[in-house]
Design a protein around this nucleic acid. Structure first.
Lengths: 166, 166
DNA sequence: GCCATAAGCTAGCATATTGCAAATATATCG
DNA sequence: CGATATATTTGCAATATGCTAGCTTATGGC
């Protein structure tokens, strides 16, 4: 049973550390932990509120729901993250829109300063990561990630059922 | 101040969705959520206990500490994940070693079956992701991820201080 | 215009998870 | 054999999360 055709029997159904999604996870988790070790103690931000801060900073005027989508957070987490940012004095709500159920968010001066500070560090981390790649590798990675983004979105949209057969 | 040299003023300090670590995170998070939607309801596993299951299944005989390192979990989470697996009847502890502080873990038949089942799905997801890439892109991604793994480990080891200057 | 229904968001509360100090158990050293 | 180190677990307080229900504002039918 162990020596039929394959020279090296692939006994394990899965090696976690070689599994593509896990490899993506490891890198992103290390970076997230490192960045959090800055913005956590310094500004009292959580991962969720940092993500909301970044989205608001990058695209002011979005509503809570739009921020949720852009930051990869759910509705409740986003609501709490925004409340947190407002308590910290980092964001303000303006109901400028015609639809007053939605409030458009933007950063205060303090929020923008914090964002700029954290973004500087985030950029430094990204640069350090990219420094380990050649220009060709960077391009290839960029393209591959774009494909993986589409593919993972498609898989997630189709759900488990779509995988079993095709 | 806004129109000195750069033709298109890069107003934002950071666009989250273009930030490399976030792009990695998004793909891995989608996949993790999808996989969890299978093993959660089916086996009552959490993300941590699934990772421990996978590590034990792949490399039986490891101790709790070794599992922690391999699964990217902390000591406490691992201890709880193992307790969980044992309660589910998926893992057993054997103090075969000379050092009876460490117990070497392995899967029961039921645990191995669950692992095989989940691994099949995990493999299908990986295949679906890789199907979106050309062979050349797969190779390039593989290489780039290996570099990023090293680089992120190095950055994490050096801590925040190492980044500010170099 | 007015009511019913829907949409966006938030509050409150029960439950689950996490982080960490201390406990437990074993090993090793002097 | 006592002191100290290592591996792991437990208990508990603090946090976070999930979900129901609520508030406010919009929208569509009449």
């Amino acid at each position: 049973m162990t020596d039929e055709t394959s020279p090296r029997d692939d006994a394990s159904p899965l090696a976690l550390e070689a599994w593509l999604p896990y490899r993506l996870f490891i890198v992103s988790a290390r970076v997230a932990a490192l960045l959090e070790s800055h913005y956590g103690p310094t500004y009292g931000l959580t991962q969720a509120s940092w993500r909301a801060l970044a989205v608001i900073g990058d695209r002011p005027g979005l509503s809570a729901g739009e921020i949720a989508r852009a930051a990869g957070l759910d509705q409740f987490a986003t609501s709490r993250a925004i409340a947190h940012l407002m308590k910290l004095g980092f964001a303000t709500r303006a109901s400028a829109s015609r639809d007053r159920r939605r409030a458009s968010l933007s950063l205060t001066r303090a929020g923008a300063d914090a964002f700029a500070d954290i973004a500087r560090l985030a950029g430094a981390i990204e640069s350090a990561l990219e420094a380990s790649l050649s220009a060709a590798e960077r391009r290839a990675l960029d393209g591959a990630l774009a494909r993986l983004d589409e593919a993972s979105a498609a898989i997630a949209a189709r759900g488990l059922r779509g995988l079993q057969s095709g």
